[in-house]
Design a protein around this nucleic acid. Sequence first.
DNA 1: GTCTATAGACGGATAGAC
DNA 2: GTCTATCCGTCTATAGAC
Lengths: 225, 225
Amino acid sequence: MSLRAVKPQHETRTRILDTAEELFMLHGFEGTSMRVLTASAAVNLAAVNYHFGSKDALIEALFRRRLDPMNAARIAELDRLEIDAKGRALSPDEIIRAFIGPSLLLMEDAKGGGRNFIRLLGRTYTEPTKPIRVLIGQLYVPTMARYKAALERALPHMPGGELIWRMHFMFGTLAYTLAATDTVQLIAGCKPEDRYDARLLEDRLTSFLAAGLNAPLKQTVKKAA
Amino acid sequence: MSLRAVKPQHETRTRILDTAEELFMLHGFEGTSMRVLTASAAVNLAAVNYHFGSKDALIEALFRRRLDPMNAARIAELDRLEIDAKGRALSPDEIIRAFIGPSLLLMEDAKGGGRNFIRLLGRTYTEPTKPIRVLIGQLYVPTMARYKAALERALPHMPGGELIWRMHFMFGTLAYTLAATDTVQLIAGCKPEDRYDARLLEDRLTSFLAAGLNAPLKQTVKKAA
DNA sequence: GTCTATAGACGGATAGAC
DNA sequence: GTCTATCCGTCTATAGAC
């Protein structure tokens, strides 16, 4: 194993992945050509096909690189909390923080490109039809099942069909917050001071989400039972 | 003004706009070619350039057609509420319903293509860099200013810098809910029964959002003042 | 592993007949 | 207003030299 022989390979792969995260985040998948991508990554045009096989395979590798550790961290954090709780039900607050924590960790990682990925991820949630959505769905299945069970214990009075909507809202708020922060701040007018203060953002999100999760459903005039 | 002469023009324009809403929603702007679009709309390939000038101009026309009436309705509804209130501050509930109502109205309009537009809109919020984002931002400026003022009155104890984040979360939840409902239901597993019951969705969203808006900010260990 | 060159398909836009 | 034919650029992917 020569040192000079394997390092460039990993460097090229990594440089492609990092650049792809940024460009896909900025311009979308269809909006980013392999020509621009490889030029921006300072690698050869043929390198993507050599290392990943195709553009689609690159996208899949890109998501797996970040999502596998992120969801593993989410489950590990929930495991840790439940062991510490020794049978006591967790609070919604704790569960929410365990879920959004790994996202915010990546969000703070501006230098390593984690922030690019997080924004790309939020963007991708709202893109239907693509095989990517199916891939993401698969990667999330175990995590979602795990968190749904935890929330059911934490919110025993929540009707069965209701919880799935609350999780949906929670999920949406998180995805959107991470993905579109700049857009809304542009719409609403906001100074870029603590825009990326992940700790404060975690507090803000947790306060908002926990209150929303706990809220009783106030129904207006209903027609039938 | 011959009857036969002007009707086909409007029909072609409308058919292009309706088809574009659906295809852009499904595949994105870059992912939808003029060839596929015109074929699907059963119009000639050159028709888009004849009627709109370019693909970009078509996109702008598409957004203006829906957003202008929608935001006008939002402002009109708030005006109406404030007149009825005769000086009393509105409740967050009322304000939230005034804001999300017009979206849900479009959401219910499956036949007229409103639902396609709503999902396209949610999708577009998370797409940075494009001129479309700037256009949308401009179209929203008056509405956002109006609602920010109303919420400041409704939530007098909310610190100044905090409200903008709550609005951000509210906005995100709405956008995401409308845009990605199918995705999350795919991830989380949910039956498609009352998926598009807008009335129930309004109740759910309002309960969730009002609780989140009102929630005090619970801060964890803080470093400095 | 990296590069150049190119194949082969598809993109938006338009000219000009009808 | 509608249509066909076409220009010209860009796309992904690959073959083959080094």
